[in-house]
Design a protein around this nucleic acid. Structure first.
Length: 556
RNA sequence: UGCCCGAUAGUAUAAUGGUAGUACGACAGAUUUUGGUUCUGUUUGUCUUGGUUCGAAUCCAGGUCGGGCAACCA
């Protein structure tokens, strides 16, 4: 953060508007619809809107675009607010499009009185059929030329609940031959006899997005109304309403939405994953939602840095999820406490270490921090748990870990030399045998021996247990939305691996919610805030460490 | 076959008529008590064809390719 970066096109526009005096200051807004949880794509928009206001001394409102009561719920409102705060932003004013329903209704009356809106009795199908196609103009509804008085009384009757859902709509009278489909007499109001999460049963007519959004911006004196590219074709309509109503001219600007590899980024698809049980909920750690990333162990700073780095532009893009991972590693490397955890244990027996003897060694908390971030106690003894993958019966080339005759450093402890191993009837290695070199103790090594490999370990006596969850990408293909057929057929069946009893070092028993750890050589982890209950600890793997060894193995 | 938008290394993103740079990735090496971190180096790019200009990624025109638009969704 803080490095110099050239301006993106929206910052250039803002600077020009400020310089020319077009606006004395800027006012942006983040306008989510409360019909789902926020995802990393929204984070891009949040960082943009709040970030520009911060940078130029302006303000940002949070406004819920709640004009469709059928899909919107208070649960979503609450999650959205929590997510924006968690990302580190504070809004100036909190608004709801539904707060403006009275005003919007009055705006509709204004347009009717100007002869610019009419009540249409056509059904949804009939309206679609008479709308024409991009290459043919639409046809006028037989109700298009009703008198102002008739429109006024019909619209009032609509509001009063005299008609059923779908029976009538209010349409703007613009241009049925416009090459822009959105200008072909768009619907302003429709009847929905549905309970609204905020206005309850006060209304049975609700404004469409186009008849609410621009006016809401205008009411709040939003100077720069930023949205994604698919709304670009709505802009002429956005401007038309503002011009006809002669209200504050907010201006719309569009940028390209974020896409990430190996995931999906539409609320509709994410909702399907939730509803059809492919994931545990909106906050499943595999989801690209803000709440999922939080539960996974991502930090707000890492997401903000990511959003800053990917920039703002108008071209379609799909960003390598590896970039997001880079930013969380970068952040966590500097802050996460180092701990040792053995995920797949086998026993290491040190034959020349006296039975019954133990000692306490010091383990640095974080070599990246000043004074190594302090130290915690490590309990050492004759029998240790080590990672089964750190032993090979026959050393491969470039193998730096344990194999008969090979020496490794036990992290923060001694150098050991492998003397043999034991297998069970099935051929599985159950024990590894070794001798330690007493004068190789970490911090006071006089052995003069240099080893290439260092492995993590936990004393059998003092080991505790915890559940550890390892996550992989949710999809097997880079861009599931672009593949043939249902995107769900590309779900990665191995996106979650549960290790029910990993061996953890005693210091981890003090782990608290929200703390981040690096399990040495294994990755970054944090406590799952939902699953860790009643003394049970469940750690989620946020991200692995970079792993050049696995890459080496794959190369053959 | 209508309208709108876009196109720079593998992925992103700069260069705003004047040396095509940066990040991530990849590759090679150094350092390392994490095969982590850090450091050094290497590799790969202006969609195409014309035009304007002393000079074009940038401006203009044609083409190609990609995205969006015909919900009583936002």
């Amino acid at each position: 953060m803080g490095e110099e970066r050239s301006l993106h096109f929206l910052e250039e526009i803002v600077e020009a508007d400020l310089a020319s005096g077009k606006h004395p200051s800027i006012h942006t807004r983040f306008p989510p619809e409360p019909n789902g949880y926020l995802h990393i794509g929204h984070a891009k928009s949040i960082c943009l809107n709040f970030g520009m206001a911060d940078k130029y001394g302006g303000k940002t409102n949070l406004r819920f675009d709640d004009t469709n009561p059928v899909t919107e719920e208070t649960e979503y409102v609450e999650s959205i607010k929590a997510d924006v705060r968690w990302l580190g932003f504070d809004w100036e004013e909190e608004h709801y499009a539904s707060d403006y329903f009275d005003q919007l209704y009055a705006f509709a009356l204004t347009l009717i009185k100007k002869g610019l809106a009419y009540v249409d009795d056509l059904s949804a199908e009939e309206i679609a059929a008479t709308k024409g196609t991009p290459t043919e103009p639409g046809k006028a509804s037989p109700f298009r030329d009703r008198s102002i008085e008739e429109n006024l009384s019909l619209f009032t009757a609509m509001k009063e609940g005299k008609y059923d859902d779908g029976e009538k709509v209010l349409r703007a009278k613009i241009d049925l031959a416009s090459p822009n489909m959105h200008m072909r007499d768009p619907i302003m109001y429709r009847i929905k006899k549905t309970h609204h999460h905020r206005t309850g049963d006060k209304w049975c007519i609700y404004p469409m997005y186009d008849f609410a959004h621009g006016q809401s911006d205008s009411i709040e004196n939003i100077t720069h109304s930023i949205c994604t590219l698919e709304f670009e074709v709505h802009k002429p309509l956005y401007n038309w309403y503002i011009e006809q109503l002669e209200i504050f001219p907010s201006q719309q600007f569009e940028f390209a939405r974020l896409n990430l590899t190996y995931t999906v980024m539409s609320k509709r698809k994410l909702l399907q994953l939730v509803n059809e049980g492919f994931v545990d909920g909106w906050d499943d750690p595999r989801m690209p939602t803000i709440s999922g990333l939080r539960r996974r162990g991502y930090t707000p700073a890492s997401i903000r840095n990511f959003c800053d780095r990917i920039g703002i532009q108008r071209r379609e893009n799909i960003i390598d999820v590896g970039l997001l991972e880079f930013f969380v590693r970068e952040d966590l490397n500097k802050t996460a406490l180092r701990r040792m955890v053995v995920l797949d244990p086998i026993k290491l027996i040190i034959h020349n270490y006296p039975a019954g003897q133990t000692e306490i060694l010091k383990g640095e908390n974080n070599p990246e921090m000043e004074d190594n971030g302090g130290y915690r106690d490590l309990h050492f003894g004759r029998e240790l748990w080590i990672e089964s993958e750190d032993f090979m019966e026959e050393a491969a080339k470039k193998w730096f870990r344990l194999a008969p005759g090979m020496k490794v450093r036990l992290k923060s402890a001694y150098i050991v030399e492998c003397t043999g191993f034991q297998k069970d009837e099935t051929g599985k290695v159950t024990e590894v045998h070794c001798n330690y070199i007493p004068e190789s103790k970490s911090g006071s090594d006089t052995s003069g021996i240099n080893v290439k490999g260092t492995i993590h370990w936990i004393s059998v006596d003092k080991a505790e247990e915890a559940e550890v969850r390892l996550y992989d990408r949710l999809f097997q293909v880079e861009n599931p939305s672009q593949e043939e057929g249902d995107f769900k057929t590309y779900i990665n069946p191995h996106s979650l691996e549960i290790i029910s009893a990993a061996k953890i070092e005693p210091a981890l028993k003090d782990a608290k919610q929200g703390e981040h750890f690096q399990f040495i050589r294994k990755g970054y982890f944090s406590l799952d805030d939902k699953l860790s209950t009643g003394g049970k600890m469940v750690f989620n793997r946020t991200v692995t460490l970079k792993d050049t060894w696995t890459k080496e193995v794959k190369k053959g």
